[in-house]
Design a binder for these strands. Structure first.
Lengths: 349, 349
DNA sequence: GCTAGCACTCAAGGCCGTAGAGTGCTATTG
DNA sequence: CAATAGCACTCTACGGCCTTGAGTGCTAGC
């Protein structure tokens, strides 16, 4: 009991940090000799061995097998991320690329999100995923029924975030443009500046009855509105899965398979980003903290970004637990900031 | 010279078909003994050996190494697909799943495309990708500038296919709803029923000058229109990459990596689906026919689907060259047909 | 024209043995 | 008494060697 458990003395801290650093760089278990040879520790390998044994007892390191070096445990990485690593700055080269690529990207929100995802995947050399902006208090702004052909049209719902939903419809009778306009106007009057989640189908029915809109129009509007309401869970953009293949930990194909499946299903991804969304700050989840059996070898860095005063989304980087945390945090944060700026500057160049 | 090259006698055809069939099932080079044991050929393995040697001379089969069995070449697969295999029917179970899942899918075009892609990926056990409907003669239908907040708004362009583009904008002065409406109306008058590709920025400038719309509005409209014009190359939805991992040919990670990259970049995918789009019929591309060094081990089945009278998109299945062509063609065709029906029935239930 | 038999080839897989990195323990030292 | 040097021990990775077995082409005979 000579150590206060949970607080590492300076030398242990340095050794742990060095083990994590070295393991991130090489993907090989780190031994005491390697450590004393490559780094100026000022003590012999035997001493390092003793310290490492204690770090293992404290739960910061584990040994894959008896005669191998040590690798960090979840707790070891956690300690490293929270206290030991020094914060990194983004290189000016990275900074420039982020700025330039986002400047040249589309003005369309969906496409901008896609471009950002690909950019982040490329720069991080890992798998990036980005949630579209989401706003708890998304407000109804406009609905418009538009005549396309004598018997078809489209209903469009616009909210504070832009076009939130569209629904094509077909009618059994010829559509009269005046009817569409009248119904649109009545709906706009009724729903102006209400929160999207509060807009109820029954309201649509009332308005429809009043202006005499037929069932086809009514259905189109109901469909569009319900789709706008459900945009709380928009698809998540992902890019860079192929980067993971370079990492030795993914030579096991079963792992890779379940990762691809999880990314495609997206459900788990929402749970992962929830914290960062709630705290509005950088979140790093390591291994088992991801709460999924299949993701124990992985870590995720998540950073929120803002869209206007009320909406928020997240940028995440998913990679092996053995990821360069310092660089990836800086990268995600830098990208998030540039993206936020780009989004609050919608008038472009 | 006893054979007319290019025409296979009945026995050779049967042997080739059986080799392809067996290789598709087992992924192992097929030898003469296996063949005589598993299938009723009525001749001995020595005879089969002679026939196989001739099939190899004719370019239909290749030998990975001297003492291995044969595997089909591109030409062998081509012969199999074009003439030897018997067309398959979809099981009623598959038929039902396609119908049910597409019926329950979203009314929103983008989401419907996504759902279809995932469905096709799951049923085919390969990687599926789907292009959104595209129309050569896409026609301008409506443009609307919508007030969101005192200094922000959104410009929306609607074409025959629905919302084609939106562009958020910000103004340095307060926006007056009347100005937005006036500009919208003037633009609608000017562009009504013109083809999107013909709408030129200069037209926007003229209209803007006439109604006195300021630079911010003008820019928003120009941006939205140019984005609508560029929707000739909409993003392609892809799903099921993880299915490829089950195939032994992808245990080479470099292959997998380049496939994932190609799917993410999408550029090559457009070239692949072009034929099916042009011919409006099923297209099967085998190995080198895909025109890409990196895709030589793969094949793609592509089937077009229709959206309304003029628009068309494609469903594709990408998998190992050793794919069950009969089943996948039936699957893609069945899905395309159901999707086309679903899309021409936009008033839903 | 088909088949049986035979000698030959080649990849895959199992089985060593060795090399090398790393460990824990103990005796020794400043 | 913390730090070190020395030592015996452990375990994996790797390369070489051999065996196995599937498959082939060729030739002689039916």
């Amino acid at each position: 009991m000579r150590d206060d458990p949970g607080v590492l003395d300076k030398r242990k801290a340095y050794i742990l940090a060095t083990v994590v650093y070295e393991y991130i760089a090489t993907a090989e278990p780190v031994g005491s000799q390697t450590l004393t040879q490559k780094y100026q520790l000022g003590v012999s390998s035997a001493t390092v061995r003793n310290e490492m044994a204690e770090l293992e007892a404290g739960g910061y390191l584990v040994q894959p097998h008896t005669s191998a070096g040590r690798i960090p445990s979840d707790a070891g990485y956690r300690e490293y991320v929270d206290r030991l690593m020094e914060p990194e700055e983004l290189s000016s080269e990275d900074r420039r690329r982020i700025r330039d690529e986002l400047r040249d990207a589309s003005h369309e929100l969906d496409e901008l999100v896609e471009s950002t995802t690909r950019l982040l995947g490329r720069l991080s050399n890992n798998l990036a995923f980005v949630t579209k902006p989401y706003q708890q208090t998304e407000t109804f702004k406009h609905i418009q029924l538009i005549w396309l052909s004598p018997r078809t049209g489209v209903a469009i719902v616009v909210t504070t975030l832009g076009v939130a939903a569209q629904s094509l419809f077909e009618s059994t009778d010829d559509l009269r443009p005046d009817d569409l306009t009248r119904f649109s106007n009545a709906l706009n009057d009724r729903f102006a500046d209400r929160q999207v989640r509060e807009v109820i189908d029954a309201d649509v029915m009332q308005v429809a009855d009043r202006v005499g809109a037929d069932a086809n129009l009514r259905n189109a509007v109901v469909t569009a509105l319900s789709s706008a309401r459900s945009s709380e869970r928009p698809p998540i953009a992902a890019a860079g899965a192929q980067n993971l293949l370079d990492q030795p930990e993914f030579h096991d194909l079963r792992k890779l398979r379940s990762i691809l499946r999880i990314v495609e299903e997206q459900k788990t991804l929402y749970q992962i980003v929830a914290d960062a969304m709630a705290n509005e700050s950088v979140s790093v989840k390591i291994g088992a903290e991801l709460g999924s059996e299949e993701l124990t070898d992985l870590s995720v860095v998540t950073v929120p970004y803002r869209f206007g005063p009320h909406a928020m989304g997240t940028l995440s980087i998913l990679g092996p637990r053995r990821m360069p945390y310092g660089r990836l945090v800086a990268l995600a944060a830098g990208t998030a900031q540039t993206l936020s700026e780009r989004l609050s500057d919608t008038n472009g160049r």
